[in-house]
Structures are given as C-alpha cells and as structure tokens.
Amino acid sequence: MDWSAVLGQALTQAVGIQAIIYCLAAIGLNMQFGYTGLLNFGQAGFAAVGAYAIAVLVVTFDWGLWPSMAMGILGAIVLALLLGVPTLRLRADYLAIVTIAAAEVIRLVSRSVTFNDVFGGSDGITGKFAAEFYALNPFIAVDPEFSGLTLGPLRYTRNDSWIWLAGWALIAIVLLIFWLLVRSPWGRVLKSIREDEDAARSLGKNVYLYKMESLIIGGVIGALAGFVFAASSQSVQPDNYATALTFFAYTVLILGGAARVLGPVAGTIVFWFLIVFIGEFLTGALRAGWIPDELLRPDQIGQVRFMLVGLGLMLLMIFRPQGMFGDRRELALDAR
C-alpha cells in the first residue's frame, strides 16, 4: 500500500473544501447550540438557502454573483425569523422540531417537479454561476500557467486552490467576529440563556431578542457554508442538503468541543481526516489483499468507513465527552 498517497489524500481532505463547508456550518451551530442552547436541527436548510440563492439567481434570473450572495444572506435572515418568531418563546424542543421539518421542506420543495424550471428538480442546477468568483483567482493573476497548489502533502487543483484559500480566509474572518461576540457582555447573556433562561429573564434580559439574534447569526453563517458548497462544485443538488449535513456539522462541533471558538475548526479537521483516511486505507488494504474479498467488497467501503468513524466517535464521547477543546470539569457541573 502507498502510505504516502493515503496520508496525503487524508491530509488534503482534512483541511479541504468539504472540511471548510462543515466547519462553517458547525460555527453557526456553535453560536446557536454551544453558546445559546438553541437546538437548530435545520442547518442544512440555511445552507440550502445560501446555495440555491446564488445558483438560482445567477443561472435562472441572470443576476450577478455578489448581489445573489447578498440575497442569500437576506434569505437566511428571513428563514431564521420565520422559524424563530413562533418557537423561541416556547420550550427548546419546539425549535428543534420546527427547524428539522423546515429544512426538509426546503429540500423537498427544491427537488419537486412543480418547480423544475426554477430549482432544477432532483438534478439541481449546474452551471458556471461562480464564474465571477473564479475570475478573481489570484494564483492565475500571478502565474497564468498556474495548475494547482502544492503545500507539502496538500494538493489542490487550479480552481480548488482559490476557493480553498478564500474559504479559510472566510473562516478566519467569521471566527474573529465570533470571538469578539462571545467574549462580550452580549455573549455573556447568550451563555446565561443556555444555563437558565428564567434566571436571565429575572435579571432584566430580553431572552427572546437574544435568542433571535443568535438564531439569525448562526443561520447566516450556515448560508455562508452553502455559498462555499455551491461555488466549489459549480452545482447545487437538493439531496446534498439533507439532514445528514446538519448532523455531520453537529458531529464536527461536539468532536471539537461545543462553546469553544476553535472547536469547529479542530472538529472538522479530525472528522474529515478520519473519514478519508479510513476510506483510503480500506481501499488500499483490499487492493493489497490484506482483507479477504468475502469480508468486504470495494462498493461497501463507503458504508464501512462511516461505521468505523461512528465507532471512533463513540469511543471519543466515552473517554473525552467534552470534545477536544472542552473542559471536563465544566461538563461535570450539574446543569441546573
């Protein structure tokens, strides 16, 4: 087996485009779940709003990419308001139910035959809608012959290099703002709501308003994940925005440590490294004949790697329930 190829591929993906997408989605959830205690199970819906906004507006309605992105952010704010207004005064579980349902509604509407002309049905939309973004590729501006970025074991293609760089820059900016927010008195109110919203109310805090702000900010960050997802593949497919996206984002968040600013970054790197490494390792091991064919067929690798990742996560939760950055003492406190 070619270990350097397996490791190189795993490392490339650990900080790759997928990792960026899930990192952003998890940062949004960190604001909502980690700091405010809001159970948003519809982060895929917010990502879908962002992704479809740029695809539909550019391809179907001939808008520019940048105004389409502004509309995507606006769309995420509207979605957060729609979900939050009826549920944020109620107990936490109502938001969970409404968000998971809303995300599915968004996915099913966008893949429905009725709206085929606008959303492209179950095939989604493929087109050069992110061309305006790729035209700004600084690597090509510097070197017209540029064919892709190589940083040690990391290897990215021409277009991927640019969105990779822009994606991590975006994460850096988002995290900076995030960090400023959560260490402020505003962030303190969010944490107090997570701990006990009646206590926050008894001290004169307008709990409903803060929950709404948190839901909106987290949702907008989710839409940013949708932008990267759509732009990186120049296509949107409705089934990419199923509940799995939300739950992988939660996995990333809990793996890294909820309510820690850098938790989602560490979580996404470990999560994608494990998934890709296990997949590549199993493929290599099969090819080298280490695993007998009766035990595992090549087409089963996709499923088996998720089983193994799941097992790994269970072990992590047993031996390190606070995630990588969490504080075990903090977790051990009663959440009264």
Binding site: P185, K191, S192, A199, L333, D334, A335, R336
Partner: peptide
C-alpha cells in the same frame, strides 16, 4: 427563586456582571 437558579457554567463573577 425557590430552587436557586445560579448559572452553573459561568463563573461567580460572570454571574454578577451579567446582572
């Protein structure tokens, strides 16, 4: 409150500042 509502995972000082 009858059953005390301290904010467990905030420090004592943060509990105070919040108010």
């Amino acid at each position: 409150f009858q059953l005390t509502k301290v904010l467990s995972r905030l420090t004592v000082l943060e509990n105070m500042r919040l108010a």
